[in-house]
């Protein structure tokens, strides 16, 4: 049984087929890339996995259980942590509070517990705090903990999103275009960081527009084009695949 199983998923928007009968798996412990040119359906597929968009047909299973139709927060609690393509941090909250939201989301929260400061509330708060600090340490954000997120340098905000996702204690981390907006040095740093997370035992699905990051760190690469999966192989093989090259570079027009 694979950790994540995408089973014949199709998503239509009116007449447009954004994702067309895609099947794929992610095994426990893998670092897999999902690439494709603009409009290939990467984000739609991503949203289907995380529960933001229901599939028109097909289903997604996580750890053997069907998760299609579940709300995003329930999918998160099953163990899929995600980041967003266009940075969605909570700007008017501190870095610590931002990351704590992930831990709170995973552990759950009850109003009367907080109101009455029961023993259960204190135990839960200690656990939230521990998981938050752990995520901050892993992303080297601990020194910034009490800074307002809006005052964090741009490059660090990417790590804040990842820290928040890590605080949900995911079994699968799905990163949506983490390298967008980063320069080469920052991308290289990010690549090292993702590799470290993977080496620590986390399963990662990396959705990227840019080929170089995926090719340099992923064990296996899936390629989407026009909503279809056109390749699923190790990077070296995908790079030589004529169909992939055609999708990325276009066919040569006869002169």
């Amino acid at each position: 049984m694979s950790l994540l199983e995408i089973d014949h998923v199709t998503r239509r928007f009116g007449g447009l087929v954004a994702v067309d009968d895609v099947s794929a798996v992610v095994e426990e412990g893998e670092l897999v890339g999902l690439i494709g040119p603009n409009g290939a359906g990467k984000t739609t597929l991503f949203n289907v996995i995380c529960g933001f968009t229901p599939p028109s047909s097909g289903e997604v299973r996580f750890a053997g259980e069907r998760i299609t139709g579940l709300k995003p927060w329930r999918i998160c609690r099953r163990g899929i942590g995600r980041t967003f393509q266009n940075l969605r941090i909570f700007p008017n909250m501190t870095v610590f509070d931002n990351v704590s939201v992930g831990a709170i989301g995973r552990l759950g929260i009850e109003p009367f517990e907080s109101l009455l400061r029961t023993r259960a509330a204190r135990v839960r708060a200690a656990e939230v705090s521990a998981r938050t600090w752990q995520a901050l340490e892993r992303t080297e954000l601990a020194p910034y903990a009490h800074l307002l997120a809006a005052d964090l340098p741009y490059g660090r905000r990417k790590y804040l999103e990842i820290a928040r996702a890590l605080a949900t204690s995911p079994r699968l981390l799905v990163l949506d275009e983490p390298a967008a907006g980063l320069n080469d040095t920052e991308t290289a740093e990010l690549a090292r960081f993702i590799r470290t997370l993977h080496a620590e035992g986390l399963t990662i699905l990396l959705v990227e527009h840019d080929m170089s990051l995926v090719m340099s760190i992923c064990q296996r690469v899936m390629v989407l084009a026009s909503g279809r999966k056109i390749a699923d192989a190790p990077p070296a093989v995908v790079q030589q695949d004529p169909i992939v090259l055609e999708a990325y570079l276009g066919t040569e027009e006869p002169a």
């Binding site: 927060w73 995600r82 909570f90």
Partner: peptide, 10 residues
Amino acid sequence: QCADAMGLPV
């Protein structure tokens, strides 16, 4: 929406 993705029952 983001809070939802972090596991909060909005």
